[in-house]
Design a protein around this nucleic acid. Structure first.
Length: 250
DNA sequence: AAGGGTGGCAACCGCCTGAGT
DNA sequence: AACTCAGGCGGTTGCCACCCT
């Protein structure tokens, strides 16, 4: 693209497609100062971009080890399983797919997988369709993740779920999750999945999905290649707040 | 060849949460 | 306790390339 689309907000901040020069400046800045402190990044990098734009560009495009191109079969399979378990928790799903970003997974789901699973209307008709449904805040149940403090995260990811935690609230949170997993059948077998799916409102849809994907939940299954290889390819994946999703998936 | 429709993807928007003051 | 701010997330939009008629 010779002249990327570019415009400027009322605050004078550039928006739109990033140029190669901007990518270079951002990459250099992150290499020098590291990730984080995004409010300082535009000034440090000499970019006329907002902090969020810088963060997004880094996370979705410039970060090392990001995989581009088509999703492998095992990745698709894992997305389907995790989506059944977690819903639209793209960041969590992406966290189990080395090299894939939440945006990638979300886009792939919206453009490839969603249409496979449903007879969704064409995108040009989706707005009408959604308006007709009159979806309101009241009708949507939106489970949100618990965020652990950084120290609790370290403990959870490095050891096990019932290790010592920074403070009682963190410990309580983790133990609550452990209880739920235990109640779901000790973290193994199909019961775990049932516990999760019971959170979803429409059981009929789940049944329909099961018909469409008969092998999704019940067949003998081993971790896909993309997960087995994650250690060797150097991908720094995040296991924080890990509740052993893999066991729940089996 | 032209024009409309569609798919894919990058980027933006608005909201939520936790930390700091 | 109330407020502000940064980080993070999911939903949505806009652009472009390709396809079809």
């Amino acid at each position: 693209m010779d002249a990327p689309l570019m415009y400027t907000s009322s605050l004078g901040v550039r928006k739109g497609t990033w140029t190669e020069e901007e990518d270079f400046l951002l990459r250099k800045c992150i290499q020098k100062y590291g990730e984080g402190k995004w409010h300082l990044v535009p000034a440090r990098a000499g970019l006329n971009r907002c902090r969020k734009s810088c963060r997004l560009r880094w996370l979705n495009y410039l970060r090392p080890h990001i995989k581009r191109g088509d999703f492998a079969e095992d990745e698709i399979d894992l997305i389907l399983r995790l989506h059944k378990l977690l819903g639209n928790r793209w960041s969590l799903i992406a966290g189990r797919l080395p090299g894939r970003t939440a945006n990638d997974v979300k886009n792939y789901w919206n453009t490839h997988l969603q249409r496979k699973l449903t007879t969704a209307p064409q995108r040009s008709q989706e707005r009408k369709y959604n308006n007709a449904l009159k979806i309101t805040k009241d009708t949507i149940i939106r489970p949100r993740p618990r965020t652990f403090s950084s120290i609790a995260k370290t403990n959870v990811s490095n050891k096990s779920m019932n290790t010592v935690h920074k403070d009682e609230s963190d410990k309580e949170t983790v133990l609550n999750i452990c209880d739920k997993i235990a109640a779901a059948g000790g973290g193994g077998g199909g019961e775990g999945v049932q516990w999760w799916t019971s959170l979803l409102e429409n059981g009929n849809e789940i049944e329909e999905e099961n018909k469409l994907l008969p092998n999704l939940l019940h067949e003998e299954y081993s971790p896909p290649l993309c997960m087995q290889q994650r250690q060797s390819d150097g991908w720094d994946f995040d296991l924080s707040a890990d509740i052993d999703l893999w066991n729940l998936l089996n």
